[in-house]
Design a protein around this nucleic acid. Structure first.
Lengths: 189, 189
DNA sequence: TGCAAATGACTGACCAGTCAGTTATATAAG
DNA sequence: CTTATATAACTGACTGGTCAGTCATTTGCA
């Protein structure tokens, strides 16, 4: 599956050759078909395998973070920056974006099992923080977007466009990001 | 080119058939080859054609907005939300993400001619606003990321994952977005 | 009548998926 | 421990179908 993910990311799903995937995994083409009935099945299995641990993670964080939501949010930002800084981790969402036109069911699967879960966890933490008076009352969806959007943008910039990146120093990214997210950019008199 | 963009987005670059593109454009397969020497050339021409007006736009905004940078920023956010709300407009960056692995030169072209320009324009506006005292002194890159990231996230959510969207009401999105961007989320005693 | 624009049947290359055959491993018998 | 047998894991040449790109022919227009 790691071999498949690498080939799919490098060449695109269509252009990736099963023989290359097999070679990369150290087996023969026929061998791949012992475990996956088709190229599409391999893609689906791959997404599913990478997604499952994420789903668990999101739920755990939301449950455990209710006591100190602000600390949990900071941890999430740091974890997200570190993980998305790794091209191999980001390869999965990148692949989902690539194939979403041709395989809407994969897009839906990813939305339901990753993004909706993560958004839900994030929003519930934000609302918990509001309830405790740590955050002002803003639209939770807007707050969640503002939380995750900039990190995602930096990941795209880095891995897709190969731009010079702040992600190489995730601590700094998170620090700046949290400063803006918490305090905004407006000058106060 | 519109036909090609649509087919590339729906099926992926590899899986898109030249005959389908031709049919969609109302000509024959051979006809396409009168104007574009190859499928790859069509892709490159398409990206280039869609990108050029954007580059001009970014420069114009940066130049004209220096007087009232805050108003310019608000306009940019509104324009970005409206445009990215349109699936046809978002199809271009989406396609770039899809093919970036196989065609790094397209990714680079897009980075240089769109994203770096836009980032540059955005950062110069933000710095102008800081100089005028309208914004506090934060890292301009972080401010620009916080500005554009959430809108990009919402576009991905809407068009790629087909999630229920706030982009259908871009005014509201921009209003919430600007509120958080300017004031942050932290509660003030 | 001449010329450019456009067509679509055709070809050569490519590759997902198959399967007859090979190798490796486990089990049983001598 | 060695040899024989059964079974599972794996291989890679092959096939059928697909499609980018070509070009002899047709269409439309001045």
């Amino acid at each position: 599956m790691d071999a498949a993910l690498a080939e799919f990311t490098e060449r695109g799903f269509e252009a990736a050759r099963m023989e290359d995937i097999a070679k990369r995994a150290g087996i023969s083409k026929g061998g791949v078909y012992l475990y996956f009935p088709s190229k599409t099945a391999l893609l689906e299995a791959l997404i599913e395998a990478k997604v499952t641990p994420l789903a668990r993670l999101a739920q755990t964080i939301a449950a455990n973070g209710a006591n100190d939501p602000m600390a949990a949010l900071r941890m999430i930002a740091a974890a997200a920056a570190h993980r998305l800084g790794d091209g191999k981790v980001f390869a999965v969402p990148r692949l989902v974006i690539s194939v979403s036109g041709r395989f809407p069911e994969i897009a839906e699967y990813y939305r339901v099992h990753v993004v909706e879960l993560a958004r839900g966890a994030l929003e519930s933490l934000i609302q918990a923080a509001m309830a405790k008076g740590a955050l002002r009352r803003v639209d939770p969806q807007a707050a969640a977007r503002a939380f995750i959007g900039p990190i995602l943008f930096e990941a795209l910039w880095t891995h897709v466009l190969r731009g010079k990146s702040v992600l190489s120093d995730p601590e700094k990214l998170v620090q700046h990001h949290f400063d803006v997210w918490l305090n905004g950019v407006e000058h106060r008199a």
